[in-house]
Amino acid sequence: MKALELEEISVYYGPVRGVENVTLDVEEGEIVALLGANGAGKSTLLKAISGIIHQKQGIIKFFGEDFHRMSPHRRVVGGLVHVPEGRRIFTALTIGENLELGAYGTKTGRVERSERLSEVLAMFPFLKEHFKRLAGTLSGGEQQVLAIARAMMSNPKVLMIDEPSLGLDPQKIDIVYDLLQEVAAIGTTVLLVEQNVKLALEIAARAYVLQQGSVVLSGVSSSLINDPRLSDAYLGKAADGDH
């Protein structure tokens, strides 16, 4: 079953092209990476999928269902969660409140929410210890962990995460990436946006490479990692269609 299918998605910021004619798919249970240099359109694509910006054209299917006209908060209810760049946790709320809000869209009862909370806290023991602390007092790495935990509160089918390694030291990056693998291990489909190619290809089964808003390269991670065209995409060499 395909968890996500994008057909010829184009997004514009006014007259400026964000992404153009992007077609990609993600199998259920897969980790897929979206790679590309700064400004290639990776974040734009995630935002279009979660619906916080509007696509100009194209079709987005979520487990076969057309998401096209669905408002963004309903997509979350449907099981698609987006952890945005910069974590965007609620700094004025406690860790516990942040987590509770993660389950907001699921419309479940109080009992189910607290059960889910226990499950997530079991996965993230650090957050349990600091449950009542204001989230704004956490370090960058801790905030990233909270952002992932918060996303997991809704028990999503698909987790999209934007640059989880950004601004973190290598040790923290390891922690975050271990968590992502754990999340995938319990059956969650993961669409990962990352600038750090090596890191992403280590955990992803497949990857798509974006350059200037278009997919220029795609394939399984093991073959991409040695592909010279991959570094070309990062160094900004023009990618011709006939490679």
């Binding site: 963004p72 908060h73 709320l93 409140e97 809000l101 907001y104 869209g105 809704s154």
Partner: peptide, 24 residues
């Protein structure tokens, strides 16, 4: 209440609130 927490979330960051499934 959960609604109150959603209010505070919207107050801080509307986009992030939408991504929680909150009908802003």
């Amino acid at each position: 209440t959960l609604l109150g927490k959603a209010m505070r979330a919207v107050s801080e960051d509307q986009t992030a609130a939408v991504l929680m499934g909150i009908n802003v």
